[in-house]
Design a protein around this nucleic acid. Structure first.
Lengths: 196, 196
DNA sequence: CAAAAAAGTTGAACCAGATTAACTTTTTAT
DNA sequence: ATAAAAAGTTAATCTGGTTCAACTTTTTTG
């Protein structure tokens, strides 16, 4: 009997590809349950990201730090989302991003080796990863359109609307850098919004 | 014997997944060769994008038009690149983007139905599409980082450096909107760069 | 090839959002 | 509990990039 922490991942997988009980259990058995404390890094520049991480509980933030010390948030992840440095993970190169826990969290980690093994073992497993990558691709296209076509103020409004669950769980400086603005400016937007 | 227009696609595929001659030929036989005149649309809002397009010769531009009439370039594609509205193609929904030929072009088109058939027919075909989507995912991450962390001027410099073959084949207004700036400002950057 | 349309240029005025800095509130660690 | 650090606020000033408008160059079309 599987630990109940695997439940969200199980339904995530079954929503994408039909597996028998055995196939599902074998796939799940390749994941490693890891508990992560707030402020702990699961990916860091200089190291290779050897895992793809499914969030069971908690919240994470991926960001890059540029020369002058500024940081820029690339992605957030809460329950039911995946997070890693995909350039590093897919190509087995050094990471350029940090991924840090914003809360005490529980994740399910799949290593590159196990993922490759699964992809070769069964056409259906490969289908799962293919669908995941395609959805990510479509998601990034929509995000690119949003970033190119909207003003800072509207990007904030959109985020509020699309990710109401995330807004109140991430620090404001992280959200500001995700939206491509300063924390001071986001503070003004919030204030302006509250008073009108 | 296959038309020689299929040669670039054949080597594109074989670079990603090892296929037998028969497997390769069957895969290629699912593509339809299409000649497209300059200024012709291959994807339009209001219609579903039923094809994924591989560029054999020529150049394309994907863009969205927002309320006020401004257009924003989302992607360019020249020889050896793929282009379509992936949201529309993957989900069989109406497109939100235009894809227009910038030159007289030759493309190889794969329909959603044929792609789905290929994915089911042979694990190796599925692997090909999985790898394509993963690379696109990694590419979009890098692009997101570039957009978030660099100034308009540096984004232009980066583009010059990364895509020297594209720069001189696309109209300047299209490049400006891809880089997230006005054509007037790009004109100034170019001028400033030329005179220093 | 001429005329019209599209693309690109230049400069002046303007503004969304950044920067700086001083301050308040919240969180963390002892 | 309390001090120190981190996060968030507010306001004044500044600037990278936009807007507007008039113009020149290139491309398209009859």
């Amino acid at each position: 009997m599987l630990n109940q922490d695997f439940e969200p991942l199980a339904s995530h997988i079954l929503q994408r590809v039909p597996l028998t009980v055995d196939e599902l259990n074998f796939m799940l058995s390749q994941f490693k349950l890891t508990r992560v404390k707030k402020r702990q890094f699961i990916v860091q520049p200089g190291f290779t990201a050897n895992y793809r991480n499914f969030v069971c509980a908690g919240a994470f933030r991926a960001y890059v730090v540029i020369d002058n010390g500024e940081d820029h948030t690339i992605q957030f992840a809460i329950e039911d989302w995946w997070i890693t440095d995909y350039n590093s993970y897919y190509n087995a190169e050094q990471a350029t991003m940090f991924v840090i826990a914003l809360e005490d969290s529980i994740i399910l980690q799949l290593s590159r080796e196990n993922e490759d093994m699964l992809k070769q073992a069964n056409h259906k497993y490969e289908t799962f990863f293919r669908i995941s990558a395609e959805r990510a691709q479509a998601f990034h296209f929509r995000q690119l359109i949003t970033n190119l076509t909207q003003t800072a103020e509207f990007r904030y409004e959109s985020f509020l609307h699309k990710y109401p669950k995330i807004v109140n769980r991430v620090p404001q400086y992280a959200l500001a850098s995700y939206l491509g603005m300063t924390t001071e400016y986001l503070s003004k937007l919030r204030n302006k919004r509250a008073t009108k």
